Computed example of a mutant assay.
Amino acid sequence: MKILLAGDSTVAACPGYEYPMSGWGAHLAPETYWWAAVHNYAKGGATTESFRAEGLWYELLNQTVKGDLVLIQFGHNDQKRGHLAARTGYADNLRRMVAEVRAKGGVPILCTSVERRHFSAGQLEVTLGDYPVVVRELGAELGLDVLDLNQWTRALYQELGEGGSKELFFHFAPGEHAHWAGGLEDNTHFHEKGAQRIALHVAEQLESLGYGLAATMSAGVRA
């Protein structure tokens, strides 16, 4: 069995010069703890539309065989395109993706988008509108499993608080990172510590759904 990932930068592996920025998909398969191969096709900036237009979706489908899991998480960039609104273009594209995975004998699993870290007056803001809601609705409509990463990450940030949750994200002061010499405060993209924590949660959720993933992944996640 393989696990194939479709998504945006919050899922994708980042280029080396951006280290330690990372999407959670890059940490889903610590090589010494996982028995299923993970193929990460996620790309920074991708929408449900561009992922297909650039050929990434077809590459993923060509590798999909019966029994493979296909995890799909989009939304961050779709919400920047008017024609990819949650209940129109976005939902239609996800329905088509699900149908195509099933036609290949794969098992599609939708993921709600991980939340951005935007606090105001100590309260975590909602930044993704109806996109997570639509994914939950599609899960019920199409009879498939949904990993609610939006709900889980929101709870995580609130538990850690505005200060503590900062460590999950890509924050550097001037002079601390060669590529961003002037400093960076990024509340969308994860530091590898945050990405690893989300990947572990994804693994645990898949195992709880009966997909047979090894809980020993936890041994490969750094504190």
Rank of each mutant, 00 (worst) to 15 (best):
V221C: 10
L168V: 01
L160A: 15
Y33G: 06
A86S: 12
L138I: 03
L144G: 01
H189S: 05
G25S: 11
V101C: 10
H189F: 09
S50N: 09
E31V: 11
N93Q: 07
T112N: 02
Q63H: 12
L147R: 00
V11R: 10
E59S: 13
C14Q: 12
G89L: 02
S22L: 11
V221F: 04
A12W: 05
H201C: 09
Q63T: 12
T216H: 06
A214I: 01
W34H: 05
F170M: 12
G106C: 11
P20M: 08
G164H: 11
N40W: 05
A37I: 06
W35C: 03
R154E: 07
G139D: 06
A85N: 06
R87D: 11
E100F: 02
E192P: 00
L142E: 10
A13N: 14
K193Y: 07
V107S: 05
E137D: 15
R81N: 02
S165Q: 09
I109Q: 00
E125L: 07
A42Q: 05
G16H: 05
T127C: 14
C14R: 12
F74V: 09
I3Q: 04
F170I: 01
E54P: 02
L69H: 12
G45R: 07
L124C: 14
V70Q: 13
L5M: 07
H27A: 12
R95I: 08
L184Q: 11
A215C: 04
K66S: 07
L200C: 11
S120W: 13
R95L: 06
L128Y: 13
G23K: 03
G55I: 06
G210K: 04
W152T: 02
F119N: 00
E31T: 12
Q63S: 14
F172Q: 03
H39Q: 12
I109E: 01
A36Y: 04
T88I: 05
G45Q: 09
H179R: 12
V107H: 10
G122K: 07
A46C: 05
V107M: 10
V146M: 06
A199T: 10
E192G: 01
F190M: 13
T153P: 04
P30M: 03
G161R: 07
T32G: 13
M1W: 04
I109G: 00
T112R: 01
A103N: 12
A85V: 03
T153G: 07
W180Y: 15
W57P: 12
P132F: 03
D92I: 02
V65K: 08
V146F: 11
P30W: 08
A103G: 15
A155W: 11
R81G: 00
V126H: 14
V38I: 04
Y33T: 10
L209I: 03
R87T: 13
T127I: 08
V134P: 12
E176H: 09
H179L: 11
E207G: 08
Q63C: 13
V126S: 14
T188S: 11
G143F: 14
G194L: 00
L147N: 01
Q79V: 08
D78H: 00
G182V: 03
K166C: 08
L160P: 09
I72S: 00
Q63L: 15
T127Q: 13
S120M: 09
Q196P: 02
Q196G: 04
A46E: 14
E204S: 10
